[in-house]
Amino acid sequence: MSRTILLTGATGTVSTALIAELAESDVDLRALVLDESEADGLLARGVKPYVGDLEDPRTLTPAFEGAQDLWLLTPNSPRAPENHMNALWAARRAGVERVVRMSAIGAAHDAPNRSGRLHALSDREIENSGMRWTILHPHWFMQNLLNEAGDIAATGTFSLNLAAARLAMIDARDIAASAARVLLDDPGRHHGKAYTLSGPRLLSMEEVAEHLGTVLGKPVEYRAVSDETKRATLRGYGVPPWIVDMLEEYAQAYASGWGQYSTDTVAELLGRPPRDFTDFARDHAEAFGA
């Protein structure tokens, strides 16, 4: 008998890749969406949408009833723990058996950023939920660089406030593949595990620029900028203040060496190495101006 998986954050980068990973599996997929306008794209991919809002627990019951597994991804905001609490409450009331949660890199009560500390609250909550659970802690996404693709395509440069930080960045498709592996395995196999997911090697942004240049066949330059310069850029794009602060706090932590580590977890889960940055660059070369 196939299991029913409910996806939250269903239209985001990782969840979109997760739907692709699960598409050929013997599972019934459903998704919680905030607005009916998001439904058509999910229906076309074989996912049944349910309209509901994690900020309003009264709207969640229909989506959760009859689901055995929950992929729990909450948006980055000061209300993330509340969203998480509402989802877990709905899951417990509906009899959901297992929750696979996407947390954040370095989530801990003493994390050097508010996002990491908020994620730690939700991690502890899920550990004491009474349900089977698995937590994923992914490193910095390679896909974050797609935010810089327009500048790279137009000028051959990109600017970040990461100084000389070296990161074992991970392709979001490997996060999704790891999540799919957990969701498709026996519900007890990964219970009580927290997996830290990274790419295969540490890279600085200068090295990222070199690899992009090789793939694109043109010079690419990384320009390290100050926090204030990046803050002004993000404000100019209309990024909400809380998100601007969050990104700055992460950048400061990375610049201090906080993210300078890698793990073998993706290879252990998938039986293959995680994608290298050059794989990502080739796959997205058109976006970067090839």
Rank of each mutant, 00 (worst) to 15 (best):
W133F: 12
R3G: 12
R173I: 08
A91N: 03
A255H: 07
I126R: 02
L121H: 09
H119A: 10
A63Y: 00
R173M: 09
G46E: 10
L32S: 00
D28V: 13
L145A: 02
A104Q: 07
T196R: 11
A168H: 03
V51W: 04
V14E: 01
I152R: 01
A290N: 08
D26N: 13
H284T: 13
H119Y: 11
P187G: 08
G46S: 11
G66C: 12
G52M: 04
T196Y: 10
R275M: 07
V266T: 08
D276T: 15
Y250C: 03
P273A: 13
L247N: 02
R30V: 07
P187K: 03
W140S: 04
A164V: 12
D279T: 15
F280W: 10
A120E: 04
I135E: 00
W258C: 08
E268P: 01
S256H: 11
V96I: 15
G236C: 08
A67F: 02
G130I: 07
A104P: 02
H137G: 01
F64C: 03
A232T: 15
A177G: 05
A165V: 02
L32R: 00
M246W: 06
A179C: 09
W258P: 01
K218S: 12
H119K: 07
R235Y: 14
G150V: 11
I152N: 00
N128W: 14
W71V: 05
L183D: 01
V27C: 10
A253C: 05
L72Q: 02
R124H: 14
A224R: 05
K230M: 12
G106W: 01
Q260F: 04
A194I: 11
E210T: 14
G150E: 14
D110L: 07
A108C: 11
R117V: 13
A10K: 00
N76S: 15
R98P: 01
D28G: 15
R275D: 08
E36Q: 14
S77E: 11
G9K: 00
R98G: 03
R272N: 09
H284E: 13
H190S: 06
L146W: 06
A87W: 01
T278C: 10
T278R: 15
A20D: 14
L160I: 06
T16L: 06
W71K: 05
A90K: 03
V244P: 00
P78K: 11
A232H: 11
A176F: 03
A172S: 14
S198D: 02
V239R: 04
G199E: 02
D53P: 05
D227W: 03
P273E: 13
L7G: 00
A80Q: 14
L183F: 06
L247A: 06
A39L: 09
A165F: 01
E125Y: 08
M85K: 13
P62Y: 05
P78V: 09
S129I: 07
L202G: 05
F288K: 02
A90G: 12
S103T: 10
W71I: 05
S129A: 15
G188W: 04
Y50I: 05
L18N: 01
Q143T: 06
P75H: 09
H191I: 07
E24C: 08
D69G: 06
L184C: 07
L202P: 02
Y195D: 04
A44T: 08
V208F: 09
L72M: 12
S103E: 06
G259R: 01
G271R: 08
D171W: 14
G217H: 12
A180Q: 05
E221S: 10
